[in-house]
Write a protein that binds this DNA or RNA. Structure first.
Lengths: 243, 243
DNA sequence: TTCTAGACATTGGACGTCCCATCTCCTGTA
DNA sequence: TACAGGAGATGGGACGTCCAATGTCTAGAA
């Protein structure tokens, strides 16, 4: 590769720093070339040549960047700058959660605290920005939830969608992604615990109550009902963990 | 483990799923063997044998798990279950932030919104749980900040520490880690933008104001001042981004 | 002319092997 | 007893080779 001449640093840096540096170099390369979401990166071989490191080494870094949601790798096609993707957090946090559940399940509770703070802290702004269209979306989700509850189907996805749409008015992608992550982690942990009997009607009613407060643009009531909603979740989790 | 026999699946699954599955298998292995934080994992070669895949392949997954903060790799020594570590988010989110700054810097603003919601949403509970000891810690941080400001030194780390200690009473590691991540991302973006002149006195005074409200256990005032603090940050960022 | 099936090129995925870098620990010497 | 140096183990890195997946292009049939 004849890069050795400029590569220098035969190992003056700790290995951890070296591989992290490689990841950074790839990200910088993306930024320098003004690649945007959806644009293609050079091929693995090209990167290997350009960066002066072996293809396997590049691949390790690329895999990491994929896990971090920076790039998207499509077998046989190429690599592309990825759209916002927080799948990484899901894996990492879920592992943390499961690890902690062996002890006391504290981290699952922490997760709920964070969700509660985020959601009840932002409900006011969300209501401020709420349009009739948003409200119609919310209502249709609620109707779907009610139908699903009557059929005894699990409400996981609809529940998540309700919360997602509740904060859609803020058009804050980071927030939506974070909430999704927390939701998925919570769901995984909950399933791993072997969820007890779930009261679908109660769950649906909780959401209707929140919906009503939001529809009336009653911030205080919405805040209060959201808090209660999470208190309920927290209690249920405690029961399940104790069992 | 003799998994190879059942491994089969010559490639019926998309490649992405395969490598993700490997990561999951390694995490499951950790959980099954009841390894806890700090415990050593099998060596790369052992994992390669046990999981029935090549060492390079295992290495790629291990690197990903390291990036996700699941394990810690120490060259020449071994691999260990890592303590809570959100370094992953920092890299990923920072990249996102820098990517978006080329356009309008929206994501940096989203980040501040999330921080604001988290901090102002939780300040009440934090004050409830605040002890004299916590308050003493906070005060010493403030004094250090004031000294640093007088010397004209940057307040980055002290600022972060103030917020970290502010929420220490909640003993919610997830929250502290998230706040740290947001902080680091914000700081990196801010530095990348080439921060304008910073008013150290004003920054210190802001924090003293918050401290005062917290010390008096005045939740409403603390909430209000935190909100104003973040509004100030938001304005400053807007100025810098416009320039 | 148009549509479809198959060949082909491109690109990532997996693996084996070899050697280097770094760490820990133990042994020997002062 | 304390320090220095070496041995062994373990991760880091680089190639080279072959496999698999995907998109495209072309030839043939309707």
């Amino acid at each position: 590769m004849a890069i050795a001449s400029q590569e220098v640093s035969p190992a003056r840096f700790s290995a951890q720093l070296r591989s992290h540096a490689l990841q950074t170099r790839i990200m910088d390369l993306i930024l320098e070339r003004s690649l945007d979401v959806g644009d293609a990166l050079p091929t693995e071989s090209e990167l290997s040549t350009e960066l002066g490191v072996g293809r396997n080494t590049v691949r390790e870094s690329l895999k990491v960047l994929q896990a971090l949601g920076v790039i998207e790798i499509r077998h046989g096609f190429g690599m592309f700058v990825a759209p916002n993707n927080f799948g990484a957090l899901v894996s990492g946090l879920t592992f943390r959660g499961r690890l902690s559940l062996r002890h006391k399940g504290e981290e699952a509770m922490e997760l709920i605290d964070v969700r509660q703070a985020l959601e009840s802290g932002l409900i006011g702004s969300a209501i401020d920005l709420l349009t009739d269209e948003h409200l119609a979306d919310l209502r249709s989700t609620m109707e779907a939830m009610e139908n699903a509850a009557k059929k005894g189907e699990p409400l996981y996805e609809l529940d998540a969608e309700f919360h997602r749409r509740l904060y859609a008015p803020l058009s804050n992608d980071l927030l939506i992604n974070l909430m999704d992550v927390f939701w998925q982690v919570y769901r995984t942990i909950h399933l791993a615990l072997g969820s007890g009997p779930v009261n679908l009607e109660q769950q649906t009613q909780d959401h209707w109550d929140i919906f009503e407060a939001v529809a009336n643009k009653d911030k205080a009531l919405a805040f209060e009902r959201l808090q209660r909603h999470f208190d309920g979740i927290r209690l249920k989790l405690k029961d399940v963990a104790a069992a």
